[in-house]
């Protein structure tokens, strides 16, 4: 599996990682190595095998529609990098 710099840049953007050029080179090589290793999965016969996405066969786990107390917003807002009133503040979102 060959991984291009563009692939790494595309993935880094999806993951919102602002990588430096050096990091891109570095990860390009490492990602290639890891993917070459995991390629061995192609040998496994998965014909008619259902994917397993949970470790347990649990089903229908619900919560009753009964309110519980919310947090005191001050307990979390005090950690926020930027707030205004009780809002979290972020750089302007352009739509």
């Amino acid at each position: 599996m060959s991984i291009s710099r563009d692939d790494v840049t595309y993935i880094a953007n999806l993951a919102r990682l602002g990588l430096t050029e050096e990091e891109i080179t570095h990860f390009q090589g490492q990602l290639e190595g890891i993917l070459a290793y995991v390629d061995k999965l192609k040998e496994a016969d998965v014909h008619d095998v259902e994917p397993m996405t949970h470790a347990l066969d649990l089903k229908n786990v619900y919560r009753k529609d009964v309110p519980v107390p919310s947090l005191d917003p001050r307990s979390v807002l005090k950690m926020a990098p930027a707030v205004q009133d009780q809002f979290y503040k972020v750089p302007k979102v352009i739509e």
Binding site: R63, D65, P67, V68, S70, P73, F87
Partner: peptide, 29 residues
């Protein structure tokens, strides 16, 4: 219009002061 949110027990109410019906789950803490 359930009494609580989809995945946590915070009240599902419109029109309250900002960030008052929040908990670790709906804040994704």
């Amino acid at each position: 219009k359930t009494a609580t949110k989809a995945f946590c027990g915070c009240a599902n109410i419109f029109g309250s002061r900002e960030n008052t019906h929040v908990c670790p789950v709906c804040l994704g803490l």
